[in-house]
Design a protein around this nucleic acid. Sequence first.
DNA 1: GACTCAGGACCCCTTACGTCA
DNA 2: GGTGACGTAAGGGGTCCTGAG
Length: 240
Amino acid sequence: MGNTCDDIYGTGLTLGLGFSSTANLKSRKQAPAAIRFDLSLSLTSDQKTENKVNISSNKDQLSAASSYSNGSVKRERDIGSEVTQVERVISSRVSDYDYDNARKKLRLTKVQSALLEESFKQQSTLNPKQKQHLARKLNVRPRQVEVWFQNRRARTKLKQTEVDCEFLKRCCETLTDENRKLYKELQELKALKIAQPLYMQLPAAATLTVCPSCERVTGAGQNSSKPHLYGPFTNPSAAC
DNA sequence: GACTCAGGACCCCTTACGTCA
DNA sequence: GGTGACGTAAGGGGTCCTGAG
């Protein structure tokens, strides 16, 4: 695997294909195919499957290609005929294997993903030095490592948001349930108050109790649902 | 020291491609 | 084989921070 992406930039094959600015490639549907085809020619068959797709529609790569084409007009002319030849070869191949693979976008290998995952477990952000080191280790561009970490952080955050959301949902359900019970309790208390003779009525807090052990309401002879309300004159332990 | 500006890092949203049911 | 859902690499815009001038 001698051909890294940087090596590929140096091949010059990108130059003659008419990409003078990144603006040309704003839509990944429009142009990248051509850029992928030429680059594939500089790779071995193994490298084609592993590396070629790494080149597709990348901002860094395009700006690199752009700088080449802006800065070396002579060289671009020099290789013009060569590129034309290359393009002919490409077009003769686009119907088979190369075409299909050229359209594939980058997928990190399992080993690469595992290594990135391992690094992410240790720390979710990387300083430039760590990024470079990891990129070298994985044989990818630092930008790819950066993007992977960004997306990974986003995934983590999304997952955490989902967990939080689920937790809040459960809290909401519990509170709703609690609210329903309390409302029912209130209705019962109101009914009780109406049913009792006026002279027997005392403040609710003074006549009703909540048993701390069974949470049942006691007081004034009622047998209510939980929670029990305790008044100041009631012995909670004796309530049940 | 206060200010401005460029560059880098990061986040968020979005797009587009690959895979799978 | 066609299709929609989903996962994910990558692009682009915005914000924040930092160092230089």
